[in-house]
């Protein structure tokens, strides 16, 4: 083991040195006025990519616990570095692709605007629609659970609707509920309703006959069985639907703003900046949307972990 790791350290150190050399020389090759022919710049970028990949492959092969987080982080940072370098070296116009540093500077300089857009689109539009939509879906699932006839009728319809391009209702909702966040929330309600409904109905069926019989021998009422047995058993399914719905909610809220909005909001900002070719601002909004989407998903996943701690997929 110790022999092996000593031998394998030499190429890693060499790779790190080469990587540093390429980074430094790339700075020199690039710069304000391109001083070197295109071939050399290309070579530098490819070299960066290959050495980073080699280091990553060594890291992945090492089998250490930290590699699970390090490898994707190195991969992501390398992509960012290549992006930054490529924009600088080939003098790509910021109208086409702004450099990550420019985007970061834009985020930092327009924090108040970004916060206002975030509140309008995410908190008012997406979040309220998400809560109403999934609440309605859960209630509907509990109601139709008592009728097999309704289940057989509603589930195929629900599955069908879940596959449709529902964002298309956005112009209708904007017409009905006006330009402000209410219409966005309405779109989100329609979008999240069916995925949550389908999953919740499946979840309510997830109890074993043996468990239900046990409740019957305790002479538990319908509501007692529901609260103490069937709702907890439905939680893994419900959270599956709720996690799918997080992305849908954000998409619905942003796309609905393309059809009309007050002069605030992420979707509005994107359309407005497109007209002025303000690409850094658009990328800044996208970065915020990406962060918000991941954080929203992560928050729901965290709640899932707390609620369904007993489930096999959450243990270990």
């Amino acid at each position: 083991m110790s022999m092996g790791s000593k031998q394998s350290l030499v190429p890693v150190v060499a790779g790190l040195l080469l990587f540093g050399l390429l980074v430094v020389s790339g700075r020199w090759i690039g710069g304000e006025v391109p001083r070197m022919p295109g071939a050399l710049r290309m070579l530098n970028l490819c070299g960066l990519w290959l050495t980073a990949w080699f280091l990553n492959a060594r890291l992945a092969g090492s089998g250490s616990a930290a590699a699970r987080y390090l490898v994707p982080a190195v991969f992501g940072l390398t992509l960012l570095l290549l992006w930054e370098r490529a924009v600088g070296m080939f003098a790509i116009s910021p109208v086409i692709l702004p450099a990550p540093s420019v985007i970061f500077a834009q985020v930092m300089s327009s924090l108040p605007t970004l916060r206002a857009d975030f509140v309008q689109t995410f908190v008012k539009g997406a979040l309220s629609g998400y809560v109403i939509g999934s609440g309605a879906a859960i209630a509907t699932a509990i109601v139709i659970d008592r009728s097999p006839f309704l289940q057989r009728g509603l589930l195929p319809v629900g599955n069908f609707v879940a596959a449709l391009p529902i964002v298309g209702v956005a112009p209708i909702m904007v017409m009905w509920f006006g330009f402000d966040w209410q219409s966005k929330a309405a779109v989100v309600v329609v979008m999240v309703f069916f995925p949550v409904l389908v999953n919740m109905v499946a979840g309510l069926k997830a109890t074993e006959p043996m468990q239900r019989d046990l409740m019957a021998t305790y002479s538990a009422s319908y509501w007692q069985t529901l609260v103490k047995l069937r709702l907890p058993a439905a939680m893994p399914f419900l959270f599956n639907g709720l996690k799918i719905a997080t992305t849908l909610a954000l998409i619905g809220a942003i796309v609905a703003e393309f059809f009309g909005s007050p002069i605030v909001g992420m979707g509005f900002r994107i359309t407005a900046e497109i007209g002025r070719l303000g690409l850094p601002m658009i990328w800044a909004e996208i970065a915020v949307a990406a962060l918000a989407g991941s954080a929203f998903y992560g928050a729901v996943a965290l709640i899932e972990k707390r609620v369904t701690f007993w489930h096999p997929s959450q243990r270990s």
């Binding site: 990949w53 990553n56 492959a57 890291l59 992945a60 092969g61 590699a67 699970r68 490898v71 994707p72 190195v74 991969f75 992501g76 964002v167 997080t246 992305t247 954000l250 998409i251 942003i254 796309v255 393309f258 992420m266 979707g267 994107i270 359309t271 497109i274 690409l279 658009i282 990328w283 909004e285 996208i286 949307a289 990406a290 989407g293 991941s294 929203f296 998903y297 992560g298």
Partner: peptide
């Protein structure tokens, strides 16, 4: 490829939580 798995897969999964549709107009 193990290196590819460990580098790309977390990003592929994370990308599903991102409203990619927002970049369509851009």
């Amino acid at each position: 490829n193990r290196a590819m798995d460990m580098s790309v897969m977390p990003w592929a999964i994370a990308s599903q939580t991102i409203p990619i549709l927002a970049i369509a107009p851009m």
